[in-house]
Design a protein around this nucleic acid. Sequence first.
DNA 1: GAATTGTGAGCGCTCACAATT
DNA 2: GAATTGTGAGCGCTCACAATT
Lengths: 356, 356
Amino acid sequence: MVRKVTLQDLADRLGVARSTVSRALRGDPQIGVDTRARVQRLAGELDYHPNAAARALTRRRAGVVGLVLPRTSRFVFSNPYFSELLEGISSVAEPAELPILVSAAVRPDYVGWLRAGRVDGLIVLGSSLEGEELRLLETLAAKGSPVVSIHAPSAPTSLVTVTSDEGPGLLGACEHLALLGHEHVAVVTGPPTSHYARARAAGWKGASARVGMTTLRTVHGDDTFASGAAAARTLLAERTAATAWLLGNDLMAFGALQALADAGVRVPGDVAVVGFDDVMPAAVVGLSTVHQGVRTLGEEAMRALHALLRSATPQPIPLVTRFVPRRTSAPSGLAPPTAARAAEGGPFETPVTRTR
Amino acid sequence: MVRKVTLQDLADRLGVARSTVSRALRGDPQIGVDTRARVQRLAGELDYHPNAAARALTRRRAGVVGLVLPRTSRFVFSNPYFSELLEGISSVAEPAELPILVSAAVRPDYVGWLRAGRVDGLIVLGSSLEGEELRLLETLAAKGSPVVSIHAPSAPTSLVTVTSDEGPGLLGACEHLALLGHEHVAVVTGPPTSHYARARAAGWKGASARVGMTTLRTVHGDDTFASGAAAARTLLAERTAATAWLLGNDLMAFGALQALADAGVRVPGDVAVVGFDDVMPAAVVGLSTVHQGVRTLGEEAMRALHALLRSATPQPIPLVTRFVPRRTSAPSGLAPPTAARAAEGGPFETPVTRTR
DNA sequence: GAATTGTGAGCGCTCACAATT
DNA sequence: GAATTGTGAGCGCTCACAATT
């Protein structure tokens, strides 16, 4: 490994002071034009890059943000939800020159990251944050640490939270199902340890009731593909009379679809299936689902964090959901079986769904 | 923001030297048992975390690794391939306490990251690395920088590369198709700027020829969903006689499936479709594809990088691919249309496919 | 002499202030 | 006095070596 070039090396070669080089490289206007030119030319020649650790130490800023995904299941990364979230975050972080440190540890040490100055701020996926852990995060935020949560339980705290209003999407789905003649639904929930999953289940039931449908059965899953398949098998074994199945997320819906296909049950002929998230594969499979703009969620979170880092007050824009009808809830026989015809376009379309 | 606790604070409170505290915290055996206990207790009480920048500066190691995904398309993150790769990398990096800095910039400055000491080593997705950029990476590696590439063109360089042998998978797919009676195939390639995509196209053609099938047409895509759909529309418009379509990756295959469904063409009745990668949605959709163990690829890459960081010589285990027959290449009418029955199990099964 | 602790320099920057033209 | 450059301390650690019991 070649010894790295330092500020002092440049200064020695040019016969100026370290600080002059430092200023010239940062484009400080109080440095003479010719000096600056000389410095920058030499820096280019020697391929000089300021040492990040030294800079971080003096500036007391790491220039890095952390993305924390508490691993509630093995499937954090496998869920396309994550990819889309990261893409949104990245699209805002990149122009701001803020590299992203990711963690999906079982018990992520974000406090350590912050305390050690490894990152200047955090975005935490808060879908399953509760109790002590949530309080810890709130305390951090209250003490002035730049922390933004996605989907953390909303409460009157100083923790900036980005989330979306699920109401419109859930209601839209249920109205659609009621119109198709469904009267009985089954709800498949995410892990009961997640406040977010519980809210979703309650939301599905509330929306169903509002359009006159009855929830016959609630099956608990854990947001994974496998649990969706298992839930479907349970419902089939019970010979449920529910003709519409409302899932806590798309991943479980995919699992349910596979189990239904394996059992030879027709979708949407025998059972209608609706998911939540509208992740990429949903359009491919033709899954009817509730679009929540995961990418936009990531963008908003990063924008909010960036504001906090500049000591500004973030104004996260409230996102709204909407129902996206596709094959799995179409009137039986209307669409060809494998048609993933999504009226809304392809899977990568990420419409900006904002209010105000 | 509360002022952070430093080593000096601890030392002052305990009436010992900074270095003693430093050693005690690192568990240095030459520190007395009681001193160590006192130090560690106080550190716990004050929630002390050593400053990462200061530590990195003195140790000359950042304790961070970089993951670079040159963004050849908008869809790096949207491709589930990425999630699975990151999951593999993360599963090895986490126990080694190496946080991961990710970048998917259009022109990622990995040299800068390395030069600035922001990361100690890099994993670079090299599918589209060529020419000058590839040479730059090779130079870095030759000079002793810990760099591991995934899918970089193999050549006798010092650049450690993790990849998989595509032969068995491609041949397996073609044998399967030939057995089903297919005689004419069409190949849809990834971007021509990618050596990896070109090798794939050549591989499909070679394998087809070997089992006696003829490649009637080659259509160029760019590895995205949309380009797969566009390629399918092109083939349909041309009324190709090819009954088996071989795609450069799963994402394009998903696009092709959607376009075929939209056109009312039956799969596999009229056309058989085969992808490559075996990413999560493949099993859901029932896409016949070549499994390449993306997760394992990530694990191997991280293991190799970890070896380099310890100045060891990495021994990446060669991975092999295998064909996974599913619905889209099944004998017409054999499987129910929506059956995503994968003989190999669900989408999250990631069998370790290793030789030796 | 072995076990334990302290001293002091240095890692490579930035920033306030002083000094020069 | 305005424009430009230099001085020196300090950020918070670690490590070689010295000093103490």
